[in-house]
Computed example of a mutant assay.
Amino acid sequence: MMMDDQDPIQAERADVIRVQQLRWRFLLELYRMNKQAHAGTIQSVSAEEVGTRIGLLETRDLEQAYAYLADAGLVELVGFGPLLRITRTGIDEVEEAYARPDQRTDHLPPLNIIHNVIYGGVHGSTVQQGTTQSTQTVDNSQSVDWARLREILREVRTAAEDLPAEQRDEVLADVIALDAQSRSPRPKAAIVRECLTSLRSILGNLAGNTAGNIAAAPLIDWIRAHEWLLK
């Protein structure tokens, strides 16, 4: 009976997280597209183009995502299609989230939670809440050069803009989570390990990609110097 009572709640929670992820992915993609426009201008694009770039092809989900963002004043509908553009409020929202990924913005939940903490794990991993593995923290008695890692993550984030959309989103999700953990007084070992492993795998598979090469080398060197974090 207890399981029957809990299942609808878990299903609703999963749906809420999915909807919040879609809103964030849509806004982030619009932000990236705008950065590629001419300086000092805000680019108008079709909602369908944004949806295609992030793999959001279901019309109902797409409409709900941009309608919420428009109601919040983060995007503006400017023409049929619909055509829309990110507002200056939307730009500020994204940049605030990147600066403080573990804090809620005015309209959206924390980036590191939405991208990484789903059912207790990173990218839907099997790390469970309430277990020793999920609560284990990084032993700071061993030397961890968090400051250098944050420098590398900034480089990775910049290089990731030139990666294919799916890989870029994965990389940015890991970067956001790692940055938040590096600033935490009690970094979660499971999240750090999962993100480092994921980044090493993604970037290591991009040997022929210039952006991947630029991002991978310093990160792999850092991981080699901190190999014990992956154990």
Score class of each variant (00 low, 15 high):
Arg32Gly: 03
Leu206Asn: 08
Arg186Thr: 11
Ala159Cys: 03
Asp4Met: 14
Leu84Pro: 02
Ala165Thr: 08
Asp162Ala: 14
Leu56Ser: 02
Thr89Gly: 11
Asp221Ala: 15
Val75Gln: 07
Lys188His: 08
Asn209Cys: 07
Thr210Ile: 11
Leu108Asp: 11
Glu194Ile: 01
Ala39Pro: 14
Ile223Gln: 01
Asp174Gln: 05
Ala215Phe: 03
Asp179Ala: 13
Gln142Val: 09
Ile220Asp: 08
Phe26Leu: 11
Ala97Gly: 11
Asp7Ala: 12
Gln64Ser: 01
Val156Glu: 00
Leu230Glu: 02
Asp92Ser: 15
Val175Tyr: 07
Ala180Asp: 12
Pro164Asn: 04
Glu76Asn: 10
Asp139His: 06
Ala39Ile: 12
Val156Ile: 06
Ser201Lys: 11
Ile54Pro: 14
Asn209Thr: 09
Gln103Asp: 06
Tyr98Met: 11
Gln36Val: 14
Asp102Tyr: 06
Leu57Gln: 11
Val19Ser: 04
Leu74His: 09
Gly121Asn: 08
Ala65Pro: 03
Ala147Ile: 11
Ser141His: 07
Pro110Asn: 05
Val16Gln: 02
Leu56Thr: 04
Thr126Asn: 15
Thr87Trp: 08
Val78Ala: 05
Leu178His: 08
Thr89Ala: 15
Gly130Gln: 06
Leu69Pro: 05
Gly120His: 03
Ser184Ile: 00
Asp169Arg: 15
Ala207Leu: 07
Val117Leu: 06
Leu206Lys: 09
Gln142Cys: 07
Ala39Leu: 09
Ile114Phe: 01
Asn34Gln: 05
Ala160Ile: 06
Gly124Tyr: 12
Thr135Cys: 08
Ala160Met: 07
Tyr66Gln: 02
Thr41Gln: 11
Leu108Gly: 07
Ile214Ala: 09
Ser198His: 04
Ile202Ala: 04
Val144Met: 09
Arg193His: 02
Trp228Ile: 06
Asp169Lys: 03
Lys231Ile: 10
Arg150Val: 13
Ile54Trp: 10
Gln167Phe: 03
Arg18Pro: 04
Arg154Met: 10
Ile114Thr: 15
Asn34Cys: 08
Leu108Met: 14
Glu93Gly: 02
Gly130Ala: 08
Gly130His: 07
His38Ala: 15
Leu153Arg: 03
Val117Met: 05
Pro82Met: 04
Glu161Asp: 15
Thr87Asn: 07
His226Asn: 13
Arg150Tyr: 04
Ala189Lys: 12
Glu227Met: 07
Leu30Pro: 00
Ser184Tyr: 00
Thr197Leu: 13
Ala215Arg: 03
Pro109Met: 08
Ile54Phe: 14
Trp24Lys: 06
Leu230Met: 08
Asn205Gln: 14
